[in-house]
């Protein structure tokens, strides 16, 4: 497993909002060590049995939290991120969708300067099955096992997670890095963590058309990753010139095509699956090969 485990102490920024509250409850039910919530002006109260604080600094001081999951509205996300960093949080999981990209850029710079880690924004979060769920992923889909997953997508991660779980391929950790063009953790950093993680045997990378993060990941894998990697690219049949939902998901001027990504992966020895079920199948094949070796 990487980044989070059953001992990771988590606070929720925006815990009393509609989304924040619903997911705080779900995370607690899953077994995540939620130690507090932060909502300015609501300090001293509690939510789903955990104390609410006015500031992150106070929450960290009183609970020893190292991770914060952020559910605040998009225009407040930068401030919330700065507050988390200043309060001593070292892992920020930013769920919020629609954060202005220049705000994200400012937060990413601050995170780097502090040596902290940011997952997101516009991401489903992270889950180490059976230990800790931080974010909005549906916990029931994931089961503990040797597959590391990293994905730009939210719901597609659930889909492929489901296919893996149904095929008996549990997961070490699943990281949804988010679909925004500017973000915290990118593929290479997460790939390296899975490479170093003893539990992870096979890595699944879920990408999509547009940009060139997948091509860069392919180059990185060729140089640095010994474990088998299975990739899936969404948008193989997307018409050129149309933005497919995510800000970055567009094929234009012949750039960012699924084909280019598939070729880059294949050149790096990465097997590319065409459907979610095929991901599970190829993972199974890769594990068989490992056992034989």
């Amino acid at each position: 497993m990487i980044l989070v485990n059953k001992d990771t102490k988590v606070i929720v920024q925006g815990a009393t909002g509609k989304m924040g509250s619903a997911h705080t409850k779900r995370m607690i039910e899953y077994g995540t060590k939620i130690v507090g919530g932060v909502t300015p002006g609501r300090g001293g109260s509690d939510i789903h049995g955990v104390p609410v604080f006015d500031t992150v600094a106070e929450a960290v001081q009183k609970t020893g939290a190292t991770c914060s999951v952020i559910f605040v509205p998009p225009y407040l996300a930068l401030d919330a991120g700065y507050e988390a960093l200043s309060g001593g949080i070292t892992l920020l999981v930013l769920i919020t969708e629609g954060m202005p990209p220049q705000d994200t850029a400012k937060l990413v710079a601050a995170v780097k300067a502090k040596g902290a880690k940011l997952i997101g924004p516009n991401c489903p979060g992270i889950i180490t099955p059976g230990e800790s769920l931080i974010g909005i992923l549906p916990g029931s889909i994931f089961k503990s096992g040797p597959i590391g997953m990293v994905s730009k997508s939210g719901t597609l991660t659930y889909e492929i997670g489901l296919a893996l779980t149904d095929a008996g391929q549990g997961q070490s950790t699943c990281v949804g890095v988010g679909g925004d063009p500017v973000k915290g953790l990118e593929y290479p950093e997460v790939l390296q963590m899975f490479e170093n993680d003893p539990q992870t045997e096979v890595i699944v990378l879920i990408g999509e058309i547009g940009g060139n993060a997948e091509e860069e990941a392919a180059v990185f894998i060729k140089k640095n990753i010994k474990k088998p990697v299975i990739a899936y690219i969404a948008g193989q049949t997307a018409p050129p010139g149309k933005r497919m939902g995510h800000a970055g998901a567009i094929v234009s001027g012949g750039k960012g095509t699924a084909q280019s990504k598939v070729e880059a992966f294949e050149a790096a020895g990465v097997k590319v699956a065409k459907t979610p079920n095929e991901v599970a199948q190829k993972v199974g094949e890769a594990r068989k090969t490992l056992t034989r070796a």
């Binding site: 994905s151 730009k152 997508s153 939210g154 719901t155 597609l156 991660t157 659930y158 889909e159 679909g179 879920i206 999509e208 058309i209 899936y232 969404a234 948008g235 193989q236 049949t237 997307a238 149309k242 497919m244 939902g245 995510h246 998901a249 065409k274 459907t275 979610p276």
Partner: peptide, 22 residues
């Protein structure tokens, strides 16, 4: 979700259907 919508579109095509929209 964008990824899931794209994946669903890809599957419709793969199984011989024609997507009318995304």
């Amino acid at each position: 979700g964008a990824g899931l919508t794209m994946a669903t579109m890809d599957m419709v095509k793969a199984f011989g259907g024609e997507p009318g929209n995304f």
